[in-house]
Design a protein around this nucleic acid. Structure first.
Lengths: 351, 351
DNA sequence: ATCGCTCATGTAAACGATTACATCAGCGAA
DNA sequence: TTCGCTGATGTAATCGTTTACATGAGCGAT
């Protein structure tokens, strides 16, 4: 059995109060007493029981992190950011991932009561709005990349503006028809990026119809979409515009973009000359595929870091002020896969 | 302030014991009493304070996960496996990542005392052996991919055998000279894979000298290594064998392999015809790069899952028996980048 | 009526810390 | 000597639970 404060007190011939005082660095304890207690602490290998301490101080310094079923680099980057900030703030992370539905998430929240001081939640499911009711008003919560939850803080990358900027960039590269590989339906990020694609397309290329391929943010779905695109008639041979392959495809994230390029390469469709491909997120790997992927940098780690800092702020009494969080603006990083460097293409050859 | 068990008891006109009993599903409570209490619980939105419960039951159902500075998909896959198993075992995860040195890790362990019932530690630093002293003998620990720590359980992917198998495969593809891109020094995994490379090279290709390029498991270091390899003289033009480019390169992990291929493609070295490239881990992306990456499947998620189950086992009294854990055997997944499909090459053209 | 049993419920002692308050020694001033 | 102050230390309440044990009601057997 592990040593408790009582063991130390008995062994040192002092009261538990004194031990507590030296453990917490309080003044008003004789140097010799302190030294003696410290020796006993060392000898007994005493470590304070943080659970017991938390019970009375009402500070656990733990925060719960609830994440959906995230994949690949997005997940690691997010955690990396959160973890780094938590370290700075001397906070600990209770991680609970892979939440399918709101019910499961509610269960996880219950499981955290009395353990955490605050919650960091990423609930990209569009129907997660009734989740706000499940959490009592007393525990501070910061959302990430979620649909607005009442007036609770919500930090998000601005997928809508990012998507519009990306489509605009493709148009400026001379691409006259642009498809989109969407992320999972009912996902907030997918939704925003799709919405941005639609709106910018309508604004910049009003004569063309949107072409949306359904994906799920994973490699394989990007691959499948790539196969579909490869099967369409190249522009030159096109007759019915509906069977014509677009000039460019904007994937909802980098992972799908890479999957898509894989399918294209396999079928001999050369990127970007025959079909430009761009992504979203700027995962580390984006710079290391061939051709290098043009994408929107989302700074996912920064998002995690900012969210945790925000939460730490309200924990320290900065208060839940400023309910409307500014959306983090993603910025374009132009590499090769968009065809920008090969110069603008002819906009629309006849026939 | 949140409702406590006392509030419920008072409100329902019963004792705290009764409330506790219904909350824990004990028998011996009148159905009508139970129903009444349940109603009050609902009305007051009472949730048991798990910290307080843990204090007396001595079961927190939390386990601490200590990870080094992991990157990319390896990290996500590992967490995914751990998390899935934890969910099954109704355990919660206290995550602490990015531990540079043993001192920082010791601090993290202290910070977990009294919160967790057991520890899952990945300490690939070779000098982490004195870490065992830091943890008292009473808390169960399971290591992952670490150098053996006394007789504590240690689950690991067999990097040594995996590396040998991979080198053997390259040889069987007809490659007569093989380089290696090593992971970070002082890392257990790097070390094992490098050792496997060396030993198998000595066994299968005794006439050739090993060529080891230093990397750090990240994309950029693989890229740098690729640049070095591209600069070497192609086999045909070779004079001094030390300046001759090898036939194949075995990267310490997939991430570096992908970085390496990126550099090669950029410099016009075609994979696998001019230089075969293989990796290790089989991250999801490995199947979606061009050419598709041949690698050793490590089942990282499976490792995490197994480690957590093992820990749950000793928690439930299965005991710390069977100290020597079998190493998980990685298996080769042959795709395109090794040149296997293009048939065996001429082993050694004259000159 | 008494005994003894079962079963629902209540009382109070833990768990391991923190901390307000009490106590007490030492000491200088009146 | 006595008072009051200061500063070190001890006592005990407290945090929100669980649970061993006590209590007491109901009831069939004697």
């Amino acid at each position: 059995m592990k040593a408790t404060i009582k063991d130390v007190a008995r062994e040192a011939g002092v009261s538990v109060a004194s031990v507590s005082r030296v453990m917490n660095g309080h003044p008003n304890v004789l140097p010799q007493t302190r030294d003696h207690i410290l020796q006993v602490v060392e000898r007994l290998r005493y470590t304070p029981h943080l659970g017991a301490r938390a019970l009375i101080t009402r500070r656990t310094r733990m925060i719960g992190v609830l994440l959906p079923d995230l994949h690949g680099e997005f997940f690691s980057e997010l955690i990396r950011g959160i973890d780094a900030a938590a370290r700075e703030e001397r906070l600990h992370l209770l991680l609970s991932s892979a939440h399918g539905d709101a019910a499961e998430m509610a269960a996880a929240i219950t499981a955290m009561h009395g353990r955490v001081e605050g919650l960091l939640i990423m609930a990209p499911e569009l129907d997660a709005s009734h989740l706000g009711e499940r959490l009592d008003a007393t525990t501070p919560v910061v959302f990430m990349n979620s649909r607005a939850q009442g007036d609770r803080p919500n930090l998000a990358v601005d997928g809508y503006r990012g998507a519009r900027a990306m489509v605009r960039h493709l148009v400026s590269c001379g691409h006259g028809s642009i498809a989109h590989i969407a992320g999972p339906p009912d996902n907030f990020d997918s939704h925003e990026r799709l919405r941005g694609y639609r709106d910018e397309l309508a604004a910049s290329l009003p004569e063309t119809a949107p072409l949306v391929l359904q994906g799920d943010f994973r490699e394989a779905s990007g691959y499948a979409a790539g196969a579909v695109l490869a099967a369409l008639r190249p522009r030159a041979a096109a007759c019915d515009p509906r069977e014509r392959r677009p000039d460019a495809v904007f994937a909802g994230n980098d992972t799908m973009a890479i999957g898509c390029m894989s399918a294209l390469a396999e079928r001999g469709v050369v990127v970007p000359e025959e079909l430009a491909v761009v992504g979203f997120d700027d995962i580390p790997l984006a710079a290391f595929v061939r051709p290098k992927l043009t994408t929107m940098r989302a700074d996912i780690a920064g998002l995690g870091r900012a969210a945790l800092r925000r939460l730490a702020g309200v924990l320290d009494g900065a208060g839940p002020a400023r309910p409307a969080e500014p959306l983090l603006p993603p910025e374009p990083v132009v590499r090769e896969s968009c065809g920008a460097r090969s110069g603008p293409r002819a906009t629309s050859p006849p026939g």
